[in-house]
Design a protein around this nucleic acid. Structure first.
Lengths: 201, 201
DNA sequence: CGTGAGGTTGATCCAGGTCAAGTGAAGTGG
DNA sequence: CCACTTCACTTGACCTGGATCAACCTCACG
């Protein structure tokens, strides 16, 4: 089992990220998938969740979520480079969607566009309402009907929901105490005692 | 001059909106451009700002902003119907972008996709940080380098920024008192005493 | 004029931000 | 193999920006 495969504990990638490595199709939590400006292909997310960030100067601002089925880096087909930075929020598996010289059909582009807009609306909703609802909603999105998921770090969740780390931590505690979530290991795993839809209530 | 042309004062459309009328290319503030489920074509915004809403059941949730140059209703090319509801946030002029049976090239689709993602990131940013910054940022987006703009109603601004009407009102007052904005008429107009970029500071 | 929708303003409250201290597990170096 | 550091998370105490509740104002239109 390679270092990459570990899902619990310290991020293996963070300390040494000299080159973004050759394109892979599997990423562990916290890993950089690509940086803004890198060149590469367009991917489709087979499983997992990806955080997109806009880079302006030194700043890194959360710019969107991409989940199972979503396309990453379609802009490379046009500009040859990624516009955002992408980082794994959990175990991520990708598959090639398109090569720069072999673009997809207009119809798949349209499907993808519609999906992107829906996803954007969902992400926007994660920043509206009470903390409990926002975090609950985020869990639901990440769960995607799975019973057990890898939860992102507090910092990520905080930036996504526009809350603070402390508030997210307290909210997760509340969800755990109320029995809607269970922990498995430090931050590696998370179990929904009930099907995730229970969270919807 | 038809009732439609008025830009100040009461919304002319609200009380009587039986049929969304025949497709037009000019809309006044507050008017419905299309409803979710309507059939129609894809448009490009020549000038103005449009609010998109997701309709689920009785609920209408803010789902995004579309500004000058953005495309509205691209999903009609695929599904034949609009997925969101679109409403004018100011004076809006549209131009035909595509007919359902005559879709645009893959390249323009890609350009549009990139624009959509950027816009989504901007909209997301309107829900992060202090009230003053959010409202300021919204003004900047709506201004789009113009010196004078039509500001949306408080309710719209509140839903976009995830603040309350009261807070937005107070914030606008602050901006006015600090001299960054000036009013022209009740809610019809708004003048930037300085080029809007001054707001950026 | 009168009416009402949209906007303003004040007073109060509280959810969440801020600051600070503490905990435990992973990794590190001796 | 054991201190020692570090990082992610937790928890508590306090403070505040914005939500909430409630009057009130003011124009555009009837």
């Amino acid at each position: 089992m390679s270092t990459i495969k570990r899902i619990g504990g310290r991020q293996p990638a963070a300390p040494s990220e000299p080159t973004p490595a050759a394109p892979r199709d599997h990423y562990a939590i916290g890993e950089l998938i690509y940086a803004a400006g890198d060149s590469g292909r367009a991917w489709r997310i087979r499983t997992g969740a990806v955080r997109l960030d806009r880079i302006q100067g030194e700043e890194r601002t959360f710019a969107g979520l991409a989940l199972k089925g979503d396309i990453l880096g379609a802009e490379t087909l046009l500009f040859g480079a990624y516009a955002f930075e992408a980082r794994a929020l959990g175990e991520v598996e990708l598959e090639i969607w398109a090569e720069p010289n072999h673009p997809p059909s207009g119809e798949s582009l349209l499907h993808m566009l519609a999906a992107t807009e829906r996803r954007a609306a969902d992400t926007l909703a994660l920043r509206y309402g009470k903390a409990l609802d926002r975090v609950r909603q985020l869990m639901l999105m990440l769960a995607d009907s799975h019973r057990q998921i890898v939860i992102p770090g507090l910092k990520d969740m905080a930036e996504i929901t526009a809350l603070t780390e402390e508030t997210v931590s307290r909210t997760m505690s509340r969800l755990r105490k109320s029995g809607l979530l269970q922990r498995r290991g430090r931050r590696s795993g998370l179990v929904f005692p009930a099907p995730p839809t229970a969270l919807a209530a």
